[in-house]
């Protein structure tokens, strides 16, 4: 059976706005499959985003969708979850939105361990504004604002999330499509802040400036650099040079924020 994605998509909203070959659509399909496998009730599911290409995703989903301001998705989502903990709260967004302008909200959502699932679609660039470098653009890469090559070091988003206190952190790629839904679903089921970083491609504003001849080249790169965590354990540092670990990178159980606050309420009420 063909997968029925359209039951979760608002009627008349396809085709989406993303460019030919952009991996965002592949990730959106993974997200829909994950939402299905978790049997989410879309009436009680908020999907929150900031600004950028990836942040247009919520508009397609037939849920309670909140397209906010640049970088602020995690903070809006925190307000939704705090006020109505019974809702499932998902955040989607890009690398620039989440870790540059939204970096502060991102790390503090991780620190609080509030039960939101944050999907970062990391395509290493600001796509919507035409290809300026982001905190995740590789050093030396070309972007519209790095005409001599990018002088900046990069963030490792997953490491950032682990360091900031997220209790579930996983990484996948837009190439490894069957893994995307499994990682997101595990993140949704996890009680606490879950960060799912999906390495993605932007053929329009990154690929063409950085010697990728086609969309397929970019997909093949994702295939080549990904090494599952288990396989990496058996590899030498030399073999791991230039590779990126994928799968569940970190998981711990720690009290979730809205549950902690429920205890504050109980104390205040003299329980």
């Amino acid at each position: 059976m063909a997968y029925d994605y359209e039951k979760s998509i608002r009627p008349g909203k396809l085709p989406h706005i993303w460019c030919p070959g952009c991996g965002h659509g592949i990730i959106m399909k993974g997200l829909i499959r994950a939402m299905d496998s978790c049997e989410l009730d879309l009436k009680n599911t908020a999907v929150v985003s900031g600004i950028g290409c990836a942040s247009r995703l919520p508009g397609y989903l037939d849920a309670c969708t909140l397209h906010t301001a640049h970088g602020r998705a995690a903070a809006f989502a925190t307000g939704v979850k705090m006020a109505k903990p019974e809702m499932t709260v998902l955040v989607v967004g890009g690398d620039g939105d989440g870790t540059a302008i939204g970096g502060n909200h991102f790390i503090h959502a991780c620190r609080r361990n509030i039960d939101i699932t944050y999907i970062v679609m990391n395509n290493n660039i600001y796509g919507m504004t035409g290809g300026q470098f982001s905190p995740c653009t590789p050093t030396g890469a070309m972007a519209s604002t790095t005409p001599y090559g990018n002088p900046d070091p990069t963030f490792d988003i997953s490491k950032l999330a682990i360091g900031a206190g997220a209790t579930f952190v996983a990484r996948g790629t837009a190439f490894h499509a069957t893994q995307i839904d499994k990682l997101i679903a595990e993140g949704i089921r996890h009680k606490g802040t879950a960060v799912i970083e999906i390495l993605d491609d932007c053929p329009t504003t990154y690929g063409r400036r950085n010697k990728f001849r086609s969309v397929v080249d970019m997909m093949k790169r994702l295939k080549d650099i990904a090494v599952p965590v288990a396989a990496a354990a058996k590899m030498t540092p030399e073999q791991l040079e230039g590779k990126v670990l994928t799968g569940v990178l970190y998981k711990e159980e720690r009290p979730e924020y809205t549950e902690q606050y429920a205890q504050v309420i109980a104390k205040a009420q003299g329980a």
């Binding site: 929150v48 909140l66 906010t68 301001a69 602020r72 903070a75 809006f76 989502a77 925190t78 307000g79 939704v80 705090m82 006020a83 109505k84 809702m87 502060n104 909200h105 503090h108 606050y261």
Partner: peptide
């Protein structure tokens, strides 16, 4: 619910998110 956010922008973001519920 009371939440002290990481900055004033985050506070207004949380405010609007909560108000929508």
């Amino acid at each position: 619910k009371f939440i002290q956010m990481e900055d004033e922008i985050g506070a207004t973001a949380a405010l609007i998110g909560a108000a929508l519920t």
